[in-house]
């Protein structure tokens, strides 16, 4: 029997090509076509209408708000994610497993629910509503609510990228640094941070992409006040609901571009980090 004499991987060529073709086809249909459609629809009537939709006042306000929310949420989650990952990877403490599970919570809970929780807490009828109103603090339907919801939804990105890497790296280098006379901050800045810098940047980029693109949680707490509490994704929805397809797709293209730039930056980083590792090997 000739088939018995074949090498194990020889008869799998067909299977291999089949798998590659199938995943490529899937990628094209699921990822590439919709993306292409967004840009095509945006430019259906030419560049001018698309541009004017983007430059229109409410769109500009939405863009500003989106950037502002990301500018607050991303640094907060970077610091928080680093702290959480550092604690999980380098120390043993009671409740460590609980913390690991909690970090995953935003991924497992629907964003709409997390938005609703904030309404329940800080809304006019919420637990802290009367107190907040008495002190003239507005959280829901205002910037603080948007930021809170975004922080909640995007928290896992930095922590989840760092935890496995830091756990794998262990505490050996930190302990060695301590015996050499380094203090806590010196150890963090000179040893821990440089060892995770590529993963950290990659996590921050993903966190940023999600912070700018978040819809569900933000939609619940936003109140959709045009020019005030509308972020880019919410603006896309409004335009679409008002049958302003070119405008909707033009703004969506802007969002998609932000995502593509993030992906490209991440890929570049990984290529650069990979080259550094190979050069060192």
């Amino acid at each position: 029997m000739s088939s018995l004499g074949q090498r194990a991987d020889e008869d799998s060529v067909l299977v291999r090509w089949g798998l590659v073709a199938a995943s490529l086809a899937l990628a094209v249909v699921i990822f590439l076509l919709p993306l292409a459609a967004v840009f095509t629809e945006a430019l259906r009537r030419g560049v001018a209408p698309a541009l004017s939709a983007i430059l229109e006042e409410d769109a500009q306000a939405a863009m500003g708000l989106t950037l502002l929310v990301a500018a607050i949420a991303v640094p907060v989650n970077t610091v928080g994610g680093l702290a959480a990952a550092w604690a999980i990877a380098k120390f043993d403490f009671a409740g460590k497993r609980l913390l690991i599970t909690l970090i995953e919570l935003p991924f497992s809970v629907s964003p709409v629910i997390s938005g609703l929780v904030y309404v329940l807490l800080f809304g006019a009828q919420g637990y802290f509503g009367p107190w907040l109103r008495a002190h003239d603090i507005q959280i829901i339907f205002a910037l603080p609510g948007l930021v809170l919801a975004t922080i909640f939804v995007t928290f896992p990105f930095v922590a989840r990228t760092l935890v496995p890497l830091m756990q794998e790296q262990g505490r050996g280098e930190e302990e060695a640094a301590a015996t050499l006379g380094a203090g806590g901050w010196q150890i963090f800045r000179r040893i821990t941070l440089p060892n995770v810098r590529w993963a950290l940047i990659s996590g921050v980029l993903l966190c940023n992409a999600r912070a700018m693109g978040e819809f569900g949680a933000v939609s619940v707490v936003s109140g959709h006040i045009r020019g005030q509490t509308n972020t880019l994704p919410l603006h896309v929805e409004i335009l679409y609901n008002e049958y302003m397809f070119v405008g909707a797709f033009a703004v969506a293209s802007l969002l998609a571009l932000l995502g593509l730039v993030t992906l490209a930056a991440k890929a570049l980083l990984e290529a650069f980090a990979g080259r550094r590792v190979r050069a060192a090997a």
Binding site: G172, A176, T179, G181, A182, I191
Partner: peptide
């Protein structure tokens, strides 16, 4: 540890990579 002035060669060396 950082004030002891004790030199340690770790089992896995723990060099700063």
């Amino acid at each position: 540890a950082r004030r002891r002035g004790v030199g340690v060669v770790f089992q896995s060396y723990a060099l700063f990579r």
